[in-house]
Design a protein around this nucleic acid. Structure first.
Lengths: 169, 169
DNA sequence: GAATACTGTTAGCCATTCCTAAAAATATTT
DNA sequence: AAATATTTTTAGGAATGGCTAACAGTATTC
């Protein structure tokens, strides 16, 4: 082995650069090539801001970039982009599946929080979602109970019935 | 009535200004007076940055400020500070009580996420914590089950025993 | 009350991230 | 292939939020 690659993502980027990376990844996945114009419209920034972001990401070794050429993600860039997307998904999943928040707010919240949430919390959140889905005490009963609680402010009174449901599993 | 006050907090401040406001509120609560020196050391910024933040917060009508004088929060500033602190607490509570995350990470995560989380999500999170504490399916059984799940990757096998616990309540 | 120490402010600087307008490169059309 | 259209880059500027070093006020001590 000539030399080991950076084992893990070293530090975290600014929220802004994470957004660019995430967007680039998604556009490449969908259309093979990520063009400045589309990145700009997705992120609602000007095309010149995209150029500057390219320079910054390239200087950090996350994308391969030369003026007027097609950009690609470096291995480090791929890893980083996937990490951001993983955080995004973990958050959105939790918001929808556990908190029963609407799709729009869930997406919006994930977009913002993904840049701030420590990895330990993302991990726990992911575990919590799968726990709730698997645990007999959890599952859809718990979630529908929570939804009801949100609407009425009270926990469901038919507890025995509900626990009977639990026992069936 | 001469004119109505702004009913609710209008928009959200930058993360930085929210941090200043939060810190000012806490220091005033604790020591009556918030001095630039202490704010600086709490937030790990220079004293001159604090002066600049004072100007900005004052210009936004959130603190009363005149050079060399004691600063105070305006009613709008109080409201805003309380709102930030509420978000902080809601997040930290959730991290500790539900995700069973350590105090340090919970605090750190709350500090960062509080500036990004939409209010709808904070509300749901708060409701979820109290729901889990009240619902017979939830409570300490669920949390300890989750903790076990985090450690072992499996849900607790003693389901009947656990549901029996539920029934006792 | 004068000297000293401490705190707060100003001045000037830097990085980030956005912008618009103009110029350069690339792609498309005829 | 020349003209036109589109895309990308450059140039120059603004706002935010941080910094250090020097200066100005306030407080304390002798």
């Amino acid at each position: 082995m000539p030399g080991k690659q950076p084992a893990t993502t070293p530090k975290r980027l600014s929220a802004s650069l994470e957004d660019y990376l995430e967007t680039i990844f998604h556009i490449i996945a969908e259309k093979q090539v990520a063009r400045a114009k589309e990145i700009a419209s997705t992120l609602k920034v000007s095309r010149s801001s995209v150029t500057e972001a390219f320079r910054s990401l390239s200087q950090k070794g996350l994308i391969n970039y030369a003026p007027y050429e097609v950009i690609t993600l470096t291995p480090a860039g791929q890893e980083m982009a996937k990490d951001v997307i993983l955080r995004h998904r973990a958050l959105k999943d939790f918001f929808i599946k556990v908190l029963a928040v609407g799709e729009k707010i869930a997406e919006e919240g994930a977009c913002k929080i993904e840049h701030a949430a420590p990895k330990e919390i993302i991990e726990r959140l992911t575990q919590f979602v799968s726990f709730i889905e698997q645990c007999p005490r959890g599952g859809s009963d718990l979630i529908s109970g929570f939804t009801k609680y949100c609407q009425t402010g009270k926990t469901d009174k038919k507890c025995k019935e509900c626990i009977a449901h639990c026992l069936e599993k």
